[in-house]
Design a protein around this nucleic acid. Sequence first.
DNA 1: TAGCTCGTTGGACAA
DNA 2: TTTGTCCAACGAGCT
Length: 487
Amino acid sequence: MVLKKKIIVWFRQDLRLNDQEALWTAFQDDAIIIPLFIWSPKDEKKWPIGNASRQWLKQSLELFSDSIKSKGSRLIIRQGAVLDTILEMVDEVKADGVFWGRCYEPYNIDLSTKLKTALKKKNLIAESFNTRLLFEPWEIATKQGNPFQVFTPFWRTCQKMSENIKKPFPEPETLNSVPSSISSESISIIQLKEKNHWKFTTQRPWEPGEKGAVKALEHFSKDGINQYSEERDRPDHQGTSRISPHLHFGEISPRTIWHHLTHISKRTSNTQKKDEIEAYLRQVIWREFAYHLLYHFPHTVEQPLRAAFNEFGWEQEKNLLKAWKEAKTGFPIVDAGIKELLHSGWMHNRVRLIAASFLIKDLLIHWIEGARFFWENLVDADLANNTMGWQWVAGCGADAAPYFRIFNPVTQSQKFDPDGVYITSWLPELKKLPAKWIHSPWLAPLEVLKQADIELGSDYPYPIVDHDEARKKALSLFEEMREKTKD
DNA sequence: TAGCTCGTTGGACAA
DNA sequence: TTTGTCCAACGAGCT
């Protein structure tokens, strides 16, 4: 009789059973599988998991643990430094090796490398799999063999290579049991921080976990996809897929999304629908692009991709930053966005752009401050996406907007939330203000404000900056930076 | 290799 | 009210 191999499958940002190549490979090898999750925020260095993400993770793990149980196995949860914990576990259960899905944050790459070396030294099996991306960051390159820094050619290359995207792996029908002698921590070891406690609201309910992720995809692909390219920009409508937190925690794989939507696209003769699906898949490729950049330019989590921006004259106005974080800027679209973030752990993409542009170009505060605030409060906080997004808005990242493109928070608000429906859903104090004035209450006649029961300065703040002046100042600082870095 | 084209999400102003 | 044009800059990526 052949002795079965014993494999620890270490789960990180791939909390699902479907299209889980690490798990599926161990299952196909007929190995005895020990599913493991490690709670180890200290290993995450300067980007330890934020409060909103913790809350999501707790629920996601709870559900993942249940689905593993339903297959006859048990998820082992341990706490401590990743390397020590795995090596101890390997000895404890006399494992023959470890399988895991790859992560691409600099600290995670470092951990994987060290783990592989340590396991190989012990003559054990160490295998990592692609569980998070359509393409590995090193599989896509320009014709010169360099990493891409512009999205469109990256997108075209991905399209050409899309035939290679593997079909999702099925989930194992059953799993072996895990001996009760192997101890596990409770999920309650994942503690929320006391301050700035993020709460679920009933206003925008989420359903974490693999089932919730599949439901979100099915709902979106039946309905939302048909007007995606227009509707995705409307925070007052439900035009986006809302799949981002599911993708971040790996409750669904991008391959599943890709194949599900390309299948629909192939079946329909409706060219508009095909275009809408392509518009959405383009966004999925933006996520790939973010990982491509994170992998090839890992310093960008702290430093600008364009070095010239190290010379930019950022301001250090603590009070302005505080007002932004507390939704007290006096610009309703910005404040509504921050409120949405604090109350629901999520912010509409268009509003993220407006709020980010306001922090950077109106308040002239360094993008890293905004990146850290988002990191702490978003349920979909993702180092690759967050870094790319903030650098894009700041103009210091890949494919960034030219310096003179500065969002006007009032015209953006008028364009994408014309009736102020989004604004008033998060700022009820402005409910009685007519749509004409909702985007810039400080311009409303006193009579109108009175009728709307608003006294500026007490019910709702005065604007903390004058946008036109702030814009001019930003442009002159960019000009200074260009002079300084000219050569 | 040198030159050419092009770039997720814009704004201001004029007609 | 909508549509068109310029803003003005630069480097990536291709041929």
